[in-house]
């Protein structure tokens, strides 16, 4: 019983990371029907920039007073700004032209190409080895006792869950409550009509790419303390998050969270009960099933159109 809870908890925390990255895919897909296939690299770059920033902040005279925890918190805004700018660059160089000429596939190749360039850049700056990211929270696992089951959690895993939820809620809140956020939804619904309202939809799409990379960079610094940080850390994560976006549906915010949790939990359970060699298989089978049975995703919906 205890081990089951342990596995589910780890699955949730991994799943939330998938969910956040998939959420980023969704943001750009909504406004432009395109995705950044370099999302994994955006995550890795975010983590590496975060690593440099946290080491710098901690290395200053203040570091000894504020400790790693506060250094980590101070580093986050820098990483968010970096992610935002990086996403803008991807949109400007890789996507805008393809959208303007209504290219069906140009953006696929150009975002992959930019991803590879970013990865090479990162390898040359930070090297090819996995680096240790200082953990802002104690690394020793705490014991959680639910009465009927007892299991151990790493504080950082809890932080991942809350951090992931927080950033997704923040974006949702922005979209639903602010005029600019509503303009994003309007652009997603009908780009031409949004233009008639005076909304600069080119800028909205650029902004959605910026937000998408921002969430990926944030996911990077969330996951970095419990894994090794390096240029290639995002490759597998980005791919799995893409599976999550397909499973959950590219049009549903709730879908990516549930999709992420499903994939995360099946992975940890399979890894333990069957074989760690097969841990990726059930999720991918699920992906194939969803594509066969409900191609719009578990929570995806076809857009309502009334004539």
């Amino acid at each position: 019983m205890s081990i089951l809870f342990q596995l589910i908890f780890s699955g949730i925390s991994v799943g939330m990371i998938y969910g956040v990255i998939a959420f980023g895919y969704q943001l750009t897909f909504a406004t432009s029907k395109t995705l950044n296939f370099g999302q994994g690299e955006a995550l890795a770059l975010g983590a590496l920039v975060g690593l440099t920033a946290i080491n710098f902040i901690f290395g200053t005279i203040w570091g000894t007073y504020i400790g790693v925890g506060w250094s980590y918190l101070l580093m986050i805004p820098l990483v968010l700004v970096f992610g935002f700018l990086q996403g803008t660059v991807v949109e400007r160089l890789g996507v805008r032209q393809a959208i303007t000429i209504k290219s069906e596939a140009g953006w696929i190749m150009s975002t992959i190409a930019l991803g590879i360039i970013f990865k090479n850049l990162a390898e040359n700056i930070w090297g090819r080895d996995g680096l240790k990211f200082p953990s802002p929270l104690p690394e020793a696992a705490m014991t959680v006792n639910l009465g009927f089951a007892e299991f151990r959690v790493q504080p950082m895993e809890l932080a991942i869950i809350f951090g992931a939820l927080a950033i997704m809620l923040a974006v949702e809140f922005f979209n639903r409550k602010t005029v600019f956020g509503k303009a994003v939804i309007a652009t997603a619904n009908d780009r031409e009509a949004a233009g008639l309202m005076g909304i600069n939809t080119t800028r909205v799409i650029s902004f959605s790419y910026a937000l998408s990379s921002l969430t990926a960079a944030f996911a990077g610094v969330l996951v970095a303390p419990i894994t090794l940080t390096g240029a290639t850390m995002g490759v597998v994560l980005g791919l799995k998050a893409f599976a999550v976006a397909i499973i959950g549906g590219l049009s549903s915010g709730m879908g990516v969270v549930v999709g992420g949790l499903i994939l995360g939990i099946t992975e940890t359970l399979t890894g333990y009960y069957i074989s760690s060699g097969y841990r990726d298989v059930p999720g991918l089978i699920l992906l194939l099933l969803v594509l066969a049975i409900k191609p719009s995703g578990l929570f995806g919906r076809a857009t309502i159109k009334k004539l």
């Binding site: 005029v179 509503k182 303009a183 939804i185 309007a186 997603a188 619904n189 009908d190 031409e192 009509a193 949004a194 233009g195 008639l196 309202m197 005076g198 909304i199 600069n200 939809t201 857009t303 309502i304 159109k305 009334k306 004539l307």
Partner: peptide, 29 residues
């Protein structure tokens, strides 16, 4: 969007309202 800024509004063929925004938010747009 720049034509709208100069004060031209267009209620287009097929209505083209924003289905995922509330009625009031459509007006706000």
């Amino acid at each position: 969007h720049l034509i709208a800024r100069r004060g031209l509004a267009h209620s287009p063929e097929g209505r083209r309202i924003f289905p995922n925004l509330s009625v009031k938010d459509n007006l706000i747009m």
